[in-house]
Design a protein around this nucleic acid. Structure first.
Lengths: 211, 211
DNA sequence: TAGATTGTTAATCGATTAACAATC
DNA sequence: TAGATTGTTAATCGATTAACAATC
């Protein structure tokens, strides 16, 4: 296996997609698959698929292809999905609540364990078994009950302050849904979901399609 | 200006980010900016910024830089944000409701005009001024009241069927939040927001950080 | 005018694709 | 064994960066 720190983000971002397709094959009780067939299903070239996988090890067998179940598990393990992640949601409007209900059911390994908001109307409400707490108490609470991932579902103006506080509370990663660029402490991983950027990109391709 | 069909997706996906930063500068009443300063704010190199912008035309001025307000508007126009987009949401759980409240306030140009669900408990509810309608009636309704963008917030198993129906109703683009790959009719633009993929990527970097 | 900074060409770098020997 | 398909090296392609003449 190569030094994983040298593997490009493009490769990493393809892995969840491979895994998703493998899951579907697994559910259809398909045992083996060739890079060529996987190419048809994913839209990536067979060559690229083999290159990508060989960054992490030789998971296939000449003349046979890849074992679906085994490759599915290997990719899960590469992605770190055999571990458990505790998560805290900050900002419990519709989006925060959607995530609270969503995240846990897609991947058993991701558990929302605490939720925070400043709005007195939301504090005390129970979402998916978790009571929304006062944001004021977040620092104390998270220092006593640490989480791995902080999820920012606040508005733009609060996002940086929340991010800084989450970093101080020792999160390992931040999943940011606020439509702004935030800065995090060294060694904290940042993953942005900029919905407005995504919608803008869609608008571009709509207004330029057929040209 | 180059043939826009030859401009890579990577370039297009940087445009919303440039625009976001320019908006902040505009709000601070900053009039001009050089590619070098923009580089510091965006994290992209000055060279790349100039290259990107020159795909669409020479918006700068030697010795001066770029006029913030004008560049902001130009990028908006390139992205097609000077038009209006009517949108329909299919699947009105937390996520669908979050989008209904979200999309409209980020960009005045994106208007949610109809919402559909199969759940009788949701049908009739009013979200942000829009009454949720029965999914059964979607086809008839959208043929009489067409939209530009269909937003899929259903679960995985319904996503493809919904996508096909939206295509039949003449949408120009689909914004897909269901965690699955869907196929759309030719000339319909597809933009995926795979939240589970995003979270998996975050997990990878967390479990490989510090190595 | 002198200084600054763009627009654009050329050089570099990295990612994707092609090809094929290794081998199951 | 013969056929299939990987793992891996080499070739290609495209995107990013560097450099600098043009020019405000």
């Amino acid at each position: 296996m190569k030094d994983t720190s040298k593997i490009s983000t493009a490769v990493i971002r393809r892995l969840p997609r491979y895994r998703r397709i493998l899951k579907e094959l697994k559910d259809k009780d398909i045992e083996r698959i060739s890079s060529n067939e996987l190419s048809k299903l994913t839209g990536f070239t067979a060559s690229q698929i083999r290159q990508d996988l060989n960054n992490f090890g030789g998971f296939g067998q000449q003349g046979y292809g890849y074992n679906v179940d085994s490759l599915y598990n290997q990719i899960g393990s590469i992605l770190g999905l055999d571990k458990e992640y505790k998560m805290a949601i900050v900002g419990c409007g519709n989006l925060g609540q959607a995530i609270a209900n969503y995240a846990s059911y897609y991947r058993a390994g991701f558990k929302v364990v605490s939720m925070f908001d400043v709005n007195p109307k939301l504090i005390g409400i129970i979402i998916n078994g978790i009571e929304i707490m006062d944001y004021e108490d977040m620092e104390d609470y998270l220092k006593a009950n640490p989480v791995d991932i902080g999820i920012i579902c606040t508005n733009k103006s609060s996002a940086q302050e929340v991010a800084t506080k989450l970093c101080d509370c020792g999160v390992k990663g931040i999943w940011n849904f606020a439509p702004t660029d935030i800065v995090v402490k060294e060694n904290v991983v940042l993953e942005n979901v900029h919905l407005s950027d995504s919608l803008n990109t869609l608008a571009y391709y709509i207004s330029n399609s057929g040209k």
